[in-house]
Design a protein around this nucleic acid. Sequence first.
RNA 1: GGCGACGUGGCCAAGUUGGUUAAGGCAGGGGUCUGCAAAACCCCGAUCGCGGGUUCGAGUCCCGCCGUCGCCUCCA
Length: 467
Amino acid sequence: MTLRVYNTLSRQKEIFETIEPGVVRMYVCGPTVYDDAHIGHGMSSIVFDMIRRYLEFKGYEVRHVMNFTDVDDKIINRSRETGQDAMALAEHYIERYQEHMADLNILPPTVLPRVSGTIEEIIDMVQTLIDKGYAYESDGDVYFRVRVDEDYGKLSRRKIEHAISSDRERFGDDLKEDAADFALWKGQKEADEPAWESPWGLGRPGWHIECSAMARRYLGETIDIHGGGNDLIFPHHENEIAQSESCNAAPMARYWLHNGMLELRAEKMSKSLGNMVTIDQFLAEHEADVFRLLILSSHYRKPLAYDDEVVAQAERGLARLHSALRPASGSVLEGPAVERLQLAREQARKRFVQSMDDDFNSAGALGHLYDLVKAINSARDAGVGGAPFAEAQDTLRELAGILGLRLDEASAVASDAAPFIDLLLEVRAEMRKLKQWAMADLIRDRLAEQGVILEDTREGTTWHWEK
RNA sequence: GGCGACGUGGCCAAGUUGGUUAAGGCAGGGGUCUGCAAAACCCCGAUCGCGGGUUCGAGUCCCGCCGUCGCCUCCA
């Protein structure tokens, strides 16, 4: 089966073919580390983690590079506000970011380069661009000559006239040959700015050049996938293309993939917080699977409106996926119910792959997962057990795993209260034998008040913490 | 103003290289099971923003309109 992906460059779905068979070189733009990551960063990371996991499922070796922008105006500004050293500040948020990604079950990229560790390559690239006539030095800064690049604007489909900001106060405008030109290198202006020696004096890289340099250093002149949020299409990715292709005389990437934005719907709380929810804040109230399910429930390219309602829906949806992983109650190993389950299992797998092959349609794929959930639960009700039942559950776990969902149910086990709850269940079982319903119900109700939900089945009573 | 996206049942959301009964989830109603619940299972709801057009046939193509949103300055 063939994978097709939507390429922003061509604005259509294309058959996915890698440069080197079996290997995917993927570069995804990472964060500027001056503050805690918010759920928008989480969305982008989950989207590309899902893409990576699926490519690996398809048998590819994925070389996944994500940068940390640790040298940047925002970081400098924040360090002036807080009095903290800029590089130390960046280091702190890099560590935090990696913790958050781990919490969200995001596979660590193969390489996590930083601007500060790529200075040599950046200088090298800027020099080449100057030598080729694509860039010029101006009072310690270096700018890219946009008008010399004949296909500038091909990704965002913008004309150069539209790339010119109306804001005359912008950085370096009086030093540029043309208002549309952008900085490759910024000369040091204040002593507290991080700076490196260069042929143009002390300074630091402009924003866009880092990705061009890192992508080339770790993945080569032409890579397979370049990704990021769709807010990066212009100017960031447009400028990366201009730099890299002018420098290397080769296409920068075969496929440009962009995720849609996560938008906050009117929420009282978030306004005072500058209208953002951090990953920390989310995970304080919900498990990581809830966020992943929320993100993957719609297509990655579409904008997603975030509010309490969609979180609640994801929460319930996750509970439904969990329902299929409860143990079998019977031991039927053959017959029509078993055959139905096996058919559903094969169908779910096939359709899951079909959906994912169509530009990573995780929402459609999830729909087929829910079909499998229903089939498993029906089979359990029909008394199916043993290997056929376990295999269907394995398939569900495997497919969910491709999406990065953990579906673990560890929470009930690891509690100090467990022995006491079990004791209460024993007492209640005795009450029920004696038909002391009032007392049995009292125990159930009182436990529910403590967040412990009981469920009576033929085999006995189980319990779990309220989600 | 320029570039682009989106508008499918109460909510979320697939499907849009035109063609059998428009996936799935959440919420809701009815039922089975249960001592009663819970969970699970079964049943119930939309003709696809509006108006034209192309076609034997359109949610799926074309035109217009309305609405929502993103980018155009730092941004995942």
